[in-house]
Design a protein around this nucleic acid. Sequence first.
DNA 1: TGGCAAACGGAACGTTGCTCCGTTAACGAT
DNA 2: ATCGTTAACGGAGCAACGTTCCGTTTGCCA
Lengths: 185, 185
Amino acid sequence: MPRADARRNQKTLLDAAAAVFVESGVDAPVREIATRAGVGMGTIYRHFPTRADLIVAVYRHQVDACTEAGQALLAGPADPYDALGQWIDLFVDFLVTKHGLAALMRSDNTSFEALHTYFLDRLVPVCADLLAAAAAAGTIRADVAAYELLRGVGNLCVGAGRDPGYDARRLVTILIAGLRHTPVA
Amino acid sequence: MPRADARRNQKTLLDAAAAVFVESGVDAPVREIATRAGVGMGTIYRHFPTRADLIVAVYRHQVDACTEAGQALLAGPADPYDALGQWIDLFVDFLVTKHGLAALMRSDNTSFEALHTYFLDRLVPVCADLLAAAAAAGTIRADVAAYELLRGVGNLCVGAGRDPGYDARRLVTILIAGLRHTPVA
DNA sequence: TGGCAAACGGAACGTTGCTCCGTTAACGAT
DNA sequence: ATCGTTAACGGAGCAACGTTCCGTTTGCCA
């Protein structure tokens, strides 16, 4: 059983981080989060050894929700291809509303492995199922891995919102359309 | 007419930067380039006020080559859709062989405007022509802007090479396939 | 109430981008 | 050839950042 102040600070930190992420993006300086939470830097790093751990903790719920929504779609009556499309939409919504999250997901910095690992471990299986269902229905090509697709969608969402001339959602839609078997002339 | 040592240093810097970019990626510390070139930091910043200016200078030739290749494809006998595909392949080759370049292109950091500006000013017109030709032939949808497409392709190339499970080329191919008019059931 | 381990806070370190200014040396004028 | 102007140089220095480290505080149980 952790000490009371530790538990309290953990909650305080999560709230502060969530608020700062919304205001300044996920790239916000650690100091800013510490100040907002009214704690020292050491406290942050004891609770969340790496920045990725903090991010994962903040967004865990939403990722889980996305996972479950995928399972629901899979069990639902929708056409497999439409189900895939709707689920991808959810994923895109999640990414574009978190400024800078997508950018971090594809960072080569090794300290973000945890982020990578947690998010993808949750989402890849669901995506794989959705892909498999659509492939089984013969709607899409069967040679695309869930991991690959998610990375691609994530990449397309990088910088979304910053640039009025760039609509990530639309490009993702086009990418998904590209999964369909091409019209055999 | 610039002074002789200035011209000499400019050349030296470009060579050093090119070498360092290959070895350590475009994110390499400025100090590293300065050391490699055997000059002080001030010298770099006088010749290239921002890092983006240096990058542009290093890759200017290749971007120009890509532009011209696009014009050649446009004038050539190839089917417009194939021409577009081949040109995009060239663009992708350019991006994936420059570690980290794609990542910088979509950076929200304002100091990279120059990079954005130069590269896109060159490539957008060519891409627009290729898109227009394919659209005129009725092969692809006509509502996608060149800028949007290039940004999308650039984003898909982020992190290419680092991750063996992610094949940027393939995803780009799928994206381009998504431009085709979908088989109307 | 006392003691001790858990938790805290923030100073300090290393790394980066970028600036600033004292020093050097190229080059046109004499 | 020499000399003065000034373009160009070099690198110390500053600010911002992530991360570590350790002296101090404080919750908790005996």
